[in-house]
Design a protein around this nucleic acid. Structure first.
Lengths: 222, 222
DNA sequence: GTCTATACGTCGATAGAC
DNA sequence: GTCTATCGACGTATAGAC
């Protein structure tokens, strides 16, 4: 009787793969990418080291996948922070301004990073394999796309000064990432709130937020 | 007669080392770090490939050294742009404002990058060996230190709003680096001037430049 | 400079799914 | 009976300690 792949075997295989990813992510969370050695991942996920290479062609690919797995959560959180409550449960526009959205995005990004410093540092700045660095570039662009929309909205609403959205969006990504690198390395970053406030202020200045803007169109869709 | 290192042999050795570095830098300039393979470097500098390893312990170290060699120029150019002409040949303060300095720094960084796009991309964003990535982190901090002084000056002079200089300085480094990544990859970036203008405006907004600032202390040291 | 530790990746054997 | 997943020791490269 010839061997065939069935639903069951495939599901099991996918399951093992996921276990490996989750185990690796835990290790990165605790000690950065350097802590996610092949043998450590194997141990953490309860398989033999050789098994890893039945699911990933090499270490770089495993790590790149872990990077995506972890970063996608962050991107999603920021994206959600921008859109959240723009439209409430009754389908009414809550009148969230572009400045509100941008502030929420910055706070979300920064606070998540500061609460999981090791993971954040690993995702943002830890020197890693070029293969993983490639993924970093992609995801920075993903963040930029989110910001771009918000900036365009802000300009359209007259909250922000006219500007090239793409440039500013990329710049915001750089600002956030780079300004967090230092604090993420230090041990006692208990001035979280100060830092977040500084960052939001900085970002709002950068986009040319007109602080006299009074949300003139508030509730215009009601 | 036992072999001894003489002045002459040492000088020759240093000379070869420098030739290797310069050759590698040329290659990076033309094709990024991927183009600077060991064999290519050997060919370009007219030595046998094995000779490289008499001057550098391994490829990573060679590349890291090239990175430093190239980046130090850039940092120096930016530092000089900040300080230039603050004091003229007669020892008189030319009254350069912090905004002037910051603008000069941004223009210098961006224009140099746009004129040597391949090299700039390699130094700023190309996925590279972790050993080299480590150097990137260092140099980003070097840039930040330059900016920090200028920002502190601007605050002190009342040109910029009060803020945490370290955070802003790091953020500026990130802004510049990240906003150039996209443009540096594209072929026809003939909107150089537009980009540079956008960047300077963005940076001045970020530091909270008070555009009504009239350089009240101009020439106060005359 | 040698020695030890640890890293990645491979391999033949084994167990088990089909 | 045929194929695959898993194991875990092993080969090889490299880094750090002494």
């Amino acid at each position: 009787m010839p061997y065939r792949e069935t639903e069951h075997t495939l599901a099991k295989k996918a399951d093992t793969r996921l276990r490996l990813l989750k185990a690796a992510r835990r290790l990165v969370q605790q000690g950065g990418f350097t802590a996610a050695s092949a043998s450590a991942v194997a141990k953490e996920s309860g398989v033999a080291s050789g098994t890893i290479y039945r699911h990933f062609p090499n270490k770089s690919e495993l790590v790149a996948e872990v990077f995506r797995y972890a970063t996608e959560r962050e991107v999603a959180a920021v994206a959600q922070a921008c859109d959240a409550q723009t439209v409430d449960s009754q389908g009414l526009d809550s009148g969230k301004t572009a400045a509100d959205k941008l502030t929420a995005a910055v706070e979300t990004f920064a606070q998540r990073a500061l609460l999981g410093r090791t993971l954040a540092y690993a995702l943002i700045a830890e020197p890693v394999d070029p293969r993983v660095e490639q993924e970093r570039l992609r995801y920075r662009f993903a963040y930029a796309e989110i910001f771009e929309d918000v900036i365009a909205l802000g300009i359209q609403r007259g909250e922000f000064v006219a500007q090239n959205c793409q440039i500013t969006a990329a710049a915001l990504v750089g600002m956030l990432a780079e300004s967090l690198v230092g604090p993420l390395k230090k041990e006692h970053a208990h001035e979280h709130d100060d830092l977040v406030r500084s960052l939001t202020a900085l970002v709002l200045r950068a986009v040319g937020f007109n602080s006299s803007f009074k949300n003139r169109n508030k509730n215009k869709n009601k």
